[in-house]
């Protein structure tokens, strides 16, 4: 059986977990076995709907102390559930919580683990999973050599698959260990689309010359419904918050569309974004290395091009 850990934030199931569920269901199909989901905490979503992403059964441990991540507690519980339910493969989203607990769960299950996976397993010769390495500059095929396997799948690398069934929901009986950390404060960033979950991303670099010029980029992002990002020099100069920094030492993202404005495309930046499905580069320097990695390029001054692009998008939206 393939067991998929369903992560939540603010009592809502994350898109990354639905992708993980679709991924787990695809593995189960390869193996001819069942897909079951594991949900902790008091989630507000309708759990039967997890059937629409491939779960036949949902095991729930409903306890509000589990709404925030405590690695020691959560990893113990996932491992205990996997043992109780006889899971052969445990799947996580490689998001903030998934990366915190999946490796600990693997240790507790004597399982080999691949994190940052980006392919279905190849079972021609053992059990091989492809993962991104060198921060997106390459891939590695990793063979898992243990009976039980743990996989954490990259966000936005396996699309949601629609299934036509409702999942049955069962309570799972597990003893919750004592908390190992105490949450004392939560600060929320309101309104933003989280970068790692965004399908569309608009990103700015030093070419925008200063934080006061970000308005044109924010207008474009708003017109598209896109999240905003930036290059490292921009976040280092505090023009934009650190959590927007994408690149080798920032966040690695894989949206459907990445629009880079005034970013030259240094190899460290490309490493963070080269898994994007479509890349648009707007830069006034025709020699900018980013054009080599782009699908569409506009050689021109961002201060002219970006407002014009925003207007074109508004126009297309109005025409629909």
């Amino acid at each position: 059986m393939v067991l998929v850990y369903i992560d939540q934030a603010d009592q809502q199931i994350k898109k990354a977990s639905l992708e993980a569920l679709s991924y787990g269901a695809a593995i189960a199909k390869q193996l001819g076995c069942a897909t079951e989901a594991l949900v902790f905490g008091t989630v507000k979503d309708n759990l039967a709907d997890l059937g629409k992403n491939g779960a036949q059964k949902v095991h729930q441990l409903k306890n509000e102390t589990l709404n925030s991540m405590d690695v020691k507690v959560h990893s113990n519980l996932v491992a205990a559930a996997a043992k109780q339910l006889n899971a052969n493969i445990v799947v996580f989203a490689h998001n903030l919580n998934g990366r915190a607990i999946a490796p600990a769960v693997a240790v507790k299950l004597d399982a080999g683990i691949v994190t940052g996976a980006c392919s279905l397993p190849n079972m021609q010769n053992g059990f091989e999973v492809t993962k991104t390495v060198f921060s997106g500059k390459a891939f590695a095929n990793i063979k898992i050599e243990t009976a039980i396997k743990v996989i954490a799948i990259n966000q936005n690398s396996f699309g949601l698959v629609a299934y036509d069934n409702a999942a049955s929901i069962e309570a799972i009986n597990l003893v919750i260990p004592p908390a190992s950390i105490k949450i004392t404060k939560v600060e929320k960033i309101e309104g933003d689309i989280p970068l790692t979950e965004a399908n569309l991303v608009v990103s700015g670099g030093r070419g925008l010359k200063g934080p006061e010029n970000w308005g044109i980029l924010l207008d474009l992002a708003k017109a598209l419904g896109a999240a905003t990002a930036c290059s490292r020099p921009v976040s280092d100069a505090d023009w934009r918050p650190h959590h927007e920094h994408v690149g080798q030492t920032g966040i690695q993202i894989a949206p459907n569309l990445y629009i880079a404005i005034g970013i030259s495309g240094a190899i460290q930046h490309l490493a963070g974004v080269n898994r994007s499905k479509t890349i648009v580069v707007i830069n006034k320097d025709p020699e900018a290395p980013f054009f080599k990695a782009a699908d569409y390029g506009v050689v021109g001054d961002a201060f002219d091009v970006v407002p014009r692009l925003t207007a074109a998008i508004e126009k297309a939206k109005a025409a629909n």
């Binding site: 390459a138 891939f139 590695a140 095929n141 990793i142 054009f291 699908d295």
Partner: peptide, 26 residues
């Protein structure tokens, strides 16, 4: 060891950028 690396791969090269006139954002 619980895992081993069997091979590496490089991402496929982009087929080439399509340049669009800055006046033609539509």
């Amino acid at each position: 060891a619980t895992t081993s690396i069997s091979a590496f791969d490089l991402p496929p090269a982009k087929s080439g950028v399509k340049l669009i006139d800055p006046e033609q954002m539509d």
